[in-house]
Structures are given as C-alpha cells and as structure tokens.
Design a protein around this nucleic acid. Structure first.
Lengths: 325, 325
DNA sequence: CTGAAAGCGCTTACAG
DNA sequence: CTGAAAGCGCTTACAG
C-alpha cells in the first residue's frame, strides 16, 4: 500500500508563518478579525493565502458540533434542467457563506436518513419534497434545521399561481373547457395539487366549468387513455410539466386531432425539447436564478437568524406562447 | 437563539452500557471484532443498536485523516434519467461499505475544487468528466484517489461499442449513408468522440462511405441546418442522445421528409419521451444497475486494494428498434 | 482479551 | 491585543 505524502497545512503552520498564536489565526479567519490590529489581521490572511491553508472540516465540526455542510435531498423521480441550475447557483451562494452544499438522492428509508444526518451533522437539510413526520423528528433529535417546500409559506402559492397562469393562458387563447394533467408516480404531488387548485380557481373566476383531473405517466397508452376520457369536444389541458404535455400532444397526433384548436396544452419548465417538438409546446418558464437565490436566502436566514426579505415575491414566471409555431 | 438539546450518544455511552472500554467498542464496531469473545462482541453490538449509536464522522475523520465520503462530480450539462439511477444505486452499494456518496455539480474553478477536496477530505472522488491536469494534481497533493472515465480502461471501449451498435443497427435496417450527430456544448465530448469512432469503424467494416459529422444543440434552427447540410438523399443518423435524435426528427418533419425511409435516426438513453414521441425513437438502452455496480466496484477495489473483476464486461446494451412504430 | 493514554486540528473561554 | 490550555469524539498503539 502506497502511503501518499499529502501535505497538510495546519493552523499552527499559519500561526508560525505569521508570527502569532493559533488562536489569533482562528479568530481572524473566522470573522473576528476586528478584535485585532489591521497589521496582525493582514499578516494572518497573507500567511493563510501563501500556504494555501484550508482549515480541517473534521476538526471544525468536532469542536463546533456541526459541520459546514448543507445537504439537499433530490427527488428521485424527475430531475429537470431547472432543478439542476438551481442547485448550481445555490452551491455558489452558500459557498460565499462558508457553507458547502452537497446533494443526495432522497431515500425512503428513515434509517438511512438518520444515519446520514447524524454522521454528517449538517448545518441544514434542504428537501424538495416535504419531510415526513419521522424525518422531522430525526432532525429535531439531532438538532438540525430542515427546509422543505412547506417551510416557505409562499411555496404553495407559487405553485398555485403557476396553475392560475396556465389556466389564464389557455382561457386567453379562447379555450373554454379545461383539464389538469397530473404526472402519475410523481413524488411532487404537493406541487401538483397546488397547481391544480390554481387552475380550478381560475376556471371558477372565469365562469368556466370545473376542470377535469387527468393522471398519466410518460407513456403512450396512458396518454391516449387520458385524452380519450375527455371525449371529442375541444379541450385545453394544463400539464404538470413539459413531458406530460408532450405525451398528450403525441396522443392528439395519433388520434388525428387538431392542435391547438381541438386539443391545446400548456406545459411547465420550458425544457429544450419543448422548443424543438413539432408542434412546439407552450409552456411556463421558471426563473432559475431567482428561485435559487430565494431558497438559499431562506437557509442563510434560518441559520444566521437574520430576517429573510420574502424572496419568493421576486420570482416572475413567464408564459411562453407557442401555439402558433 | 434557541439551543436545541440534541442527544448525542458517544462511544463512551456504548462502552458504559456494554460494560467494556471505549477501545473495545471502537475495535468491535470497526470490523476487528474477531479479536474479542463472541459474548463481548454481542454485548457491544447490542448496546450500540439499543442506543442508536452513530460514530461521529468528524472525530473519525480527524483521527484517520480521511472522511468516509465519496464525492461524485456531476456533469453540469445533461443529466439524464440514467445517470440519476446510477447514482441512486451507487449510493446504496457504497453505503454497504460504510462509504457515503454525495453529489456535487462540477465547477470549472480549480480553486473551488481544491477547497472542496481539502475541506471534505473524501476517500475518493468520482467524475463523469475526465479530470483536468490541475485537478489530478490537487488530488495527488491532498492524497485523494480519483476515478474518471479514463480510469476504467474499458470506458472508452464502452462508448466505442455504443457507436458501433448504433451504426450496425442502421445498417441492418438497410440504411447505407450514415452520419453522427454531436451535441454542441456537451462537456461529454470524450464520450461522443469514442462513439463517433465506433460509427466510423463500423461503416468501414461494412464497406459504407465515411460517416458525416454533424453538430447541433437542442434547437430547431440548428437541427434544420444540420439536416439540410446532408442534402436530399436518404440518410441515417446515429445521435449522441435521444434529445439530439428528437431534434433531428423534428427537422425531418418540418422538411416533410419520410421517416425512417428518407431520414432515419437512432438515439441513446431510452428516455421516456423517446417512447412517447410520434414517431417513436429507436434508441439504445443502458443497463443502469450493471453500470452502477461496475463503477462502485472500481471505487471499492481502488480503496481496499482488492482486484476488480472487470465489471464493464457485464454491461449489456440493447438496441430498441422502434422504426416501425 | 482489556483499558489508560496520546493525539488528530480546531475553537473558545480565560488569564495576562 | 495575545497565547497557553482544555476539550470536541474518536482510533490506535501499548502495557498489562
């Protein structure tokens, strides 16, 4: 077995190089530099830079009782491009606060959840699925803060507004009989329900009949069944995401129905394929950067205790109308 | 600030509860139980279980000089369903060896790479993109093992064989003029090049002309330009992935060309949409479970020093023929 | 087979 | 403003 001679620069090295004590190094490097003379501060920072010093996360965690990790649990069904961009941005923003964002796929097992929480001792845990009661209990027992869609009071209303926006778009296009298409087996049912509620309320406000509720997977047979269940009259379908919308478009093509006059759809996510398909898909674009910022602001506020300035308000969704393309 | 009373069970608690010393607890729980009487071993394991004991990762890392983390860097462009499933499975398998897989999106910055490596001190780093020279240097300096597609000698040949398989499929379907379509801006160029080479070699072996090389994004204009560049004669296109293939299908539809007689495509990944589109997409299915197992086997072998039993051999790709659907 | 002791690298009172 | 000391929880020689 080869023993690598990994060079480890410790705070002792920095202290020696800067001509100060290790506690001074620690204080300066942990944002309490104001307690020292500018000269001392500068010496320490310079030495740390020169030596490429990175404090040992293990030692920090041990003494502080918590690591600088933030764990984000990813839904293990759909993972759209949006979510990916969100995490890239969140990684950067958290890094600016000294926090390290790592990703994990959600596991159904409470046992492994506990193991990962207690082992990694993260500063916060973030999930795009609402935590189960069990998970909340585990986090509380381990003293870890959790953030999920229900944490942000506005998340529900964001999805609600997406549903409203979809319905409004279809209404403005002249469609009068609406439906909402769920993605079967999505673990994002909570989002979907809020959206459907938005669609329903918009229909009511516009004096339209109650929208029909559809459920399908990304599957031809299921899409055909869903479409057929609506009969031959013109119908407009707000879809959970672009993949669902594309499935219904395929079903409409197979049935020889006119798009968008007889069957109209609107998706959600503005996926690359939504722009390329024939016909192109109308959809809703999600402003990734804002969302990421909001998520991260919530975490940082939760950790530091500072108030969060309602970031969700800033998120501006856009309808992309491609019916005529 | 509320101080949570997080219950921390230490090895001292386990030792006390089992009536042994802390070193005994440590030895038993770290696989050196054979040094003790079965009775002692059982007492310790029972106590650990009863108390829900999880050793502190921080303390372990500090004393061992390395954590039990394995960091996987994800490509920040495409992230197909396959890759996702692979990581889910890899997570499980590594967990069985006491290793914790966490995910990060690749960052171009060498600086942040160094920070994450030196801070987290992982047991291994895994990347789906070949490491840069700088990254290799960082890992060596920090004494961390890295695994990337070039580590496994066979990875290149896997992609090469995918290319061959695509070309062979198109040939068997009667197509005689082939092309390969790259995804522009893909950071997976290495994979793509191996696949194109496979297509080229297969063409040569079959006595076909050299395949044309195309480059496009998931974009109508680019897909049309790529298709138009090939002229009106029948052509069959092996595509980097299903999204590229879908783009070309759209272009062919717009140009009113006959699919598959005049324009044939074969994708890669067997995405949900490839099954739903009209027409459906022929593609190659990637056996996720096997691939994950192979990846993990490589890591574990690298860490433990045990030989790896050539897992790549086991991966069986399947062509899914949907030309007639 | 067992247990007392040292030490991993850091942070944080605390005495000067 | 500085520095010596304790301690976070664990693992690993080492002496019995």
């Amino acid at each position: 077995m080869v023993q690598e001679d990994a060079v480890v620069t410790t705070s002792r090295d920095v202290a020696r190089s800067a001509g100060v004590s290790r506690s001074t190094v620690s204080e300066v490097l942990n944002g309490r530099g104001h307690k020292f003379s500018p000269a001392t501060r500068e010496k320490v920072e310079q030495a740390a830079r020169d030596l490429g010093y990175q404090p040992s996360a293990a030692a920090r965690s041990l003494v502080r009782g918590t690591s600088d990790l933030v764990i984000a649990f990813l839904p293990n069904t759909t993972f759209g491009g949006n979510l990916q961009n969100i995490f890239e941005q969140a990684t950067d923003e958290l890094a600016q606060h000294g926090l390290i964002l790592v990703l994990r796929f959600s596991t159904p097992s409470a046992d492994s959840f506990d193991r990962i929480i207690s082992t990694l001792n993260p500063r916060a845990v973030l999930s795009y699925m609402p935590f189960t009661a069990q998970e909340r209990q585990i986090m509380q027992a381990r003293g870890v803060e959790g953030f999920d869609p229900t944490t942000s009071a506005d998340q529900g209303s964001v999805d609600y507004n997406i549903g409203r926006m979809q319905a409004r778009y279809l209404y403005d296009k002249g469609h009068r009989r609406l439906a909402f298409a769920h993605l079967i087996d999505s673990r994002q049912e909570l989002f979907a329900d809020s959206r459907e509620e938005g669609v329903r309320d918009e229909c009511r406000d516009r004096g339209l009949p109650e929208p029909v509720s559809l459920r399908l997977g990304i599957d031809r047979i299921e899409a055909l069944a869903a479409l057929d269940s609506l009969g031959d009259l013109p119908v407009a379908i707000a879809c959970y995401n672009d993949d669902v919308a594309a499935s219904i478009v395929s079903a409409a093509i197979i049935r020889g129905r006119q798009i968008p006059d007889n069957v109209a759809v609107v998706g959600m996510d503005n996926t690359p394929l939504s722009r390329v398909m024939v016909p192109r898909l109308s959809t809703i674009d999600y402003p990734v950067a804002d969302a990421a910022h909001g998520t991260v602001a919530g975490i940082i506020a939760g950790i530091t205790g500072d108030p969060v300035n309602s970031p969700d308000q800033l998120i501006q969704f856009r309808v992309l109308d491609r019916e005529t393309a």
